[in-house]
Amino acid sequence: MTSKVFSSQANIIECEEITVIRDNKEILCAASCCVPRNSLTFLVGENGTGKTTLVQTMLGILPQREGKISVHSLNREKVNIGYVPQSIEFPKQLQLTVAEYLRYVSNLDTEDIHNSLKTVDFPLSHLRKTINQLSGGQRQKLLLAAELSRKPDILFLDEPLSNVDDTGEKHILDVILEIKNKGVTIILITHDWQMVSTYADHVICLNKNFLCEQGTSCICKNSLSKVNIKQIQKITPDPLNTHDGYCYIENV
């Protein structure tokens, strides 16, 4: 794999040839990628290609066997990271209310709790409800509100719109764009190519076939214009024959 010179000024996260093994299975192999500072970066790929694994490795939840992950701060302060997982299976017997959850995760006072919930259009009347009484979409909004209230520099979102209705989807997208404009770097896992082609600043593609057959690299580094992203969209229905094409579209 060609070695790349990364810029810590331009990139907030850099992964250099990382290999991740999970349950004795190699999920990522000598994979390199970067996340530009203050970008909306999309992480795309078919099911089972290792999108969540890559995010969890960047977050330090999963260890990498080889390679290096660097998170660069512009000042000397530690980079504050937020993470909204695809879903959380809240234990049914832990009768945690919405307000309690926000207090535990973010150490917020009541006023801040209200503000963070308003940001994601979460009904304040549900504040005293237990989380198990919420719908999937409401839980997703709650998780996002909790992470936003922690004022992250980097926010990882694992399919944040999967359980949300159309109105909620539009609202959450607006919130994501708004916080991006405030200087937050966002890494978002999605299967929605329409969204990628409309909003992406940067795309990281993972291709299962490439990983399995070549065993050398699974991530392409892209700095794509919106036109090129649309080209990717066209070829994804047949990735078996075109995986080289959509894994290595670079700096076009």
């Binding site: 969890q56 977050l59 330090g60 939840i61 990271i81 937020g82 993470y83 997982p85 959380i88 809240f90 234990p91 832990l94 945690l96 959850y101 535990y104 995760v105």
Partner: peptide, 17 residues
């Protein structure tokens, strides 16, 4: 207490925090 509550909900979240 806080760590116990958060790890009971989601272990990964505690690592991020």
């Amino acid at each position: 207490w806080r760590t116990l509550v958060i790890t009971t909900i989601h272990n990964d979240l505690s690592k991020v925090l």
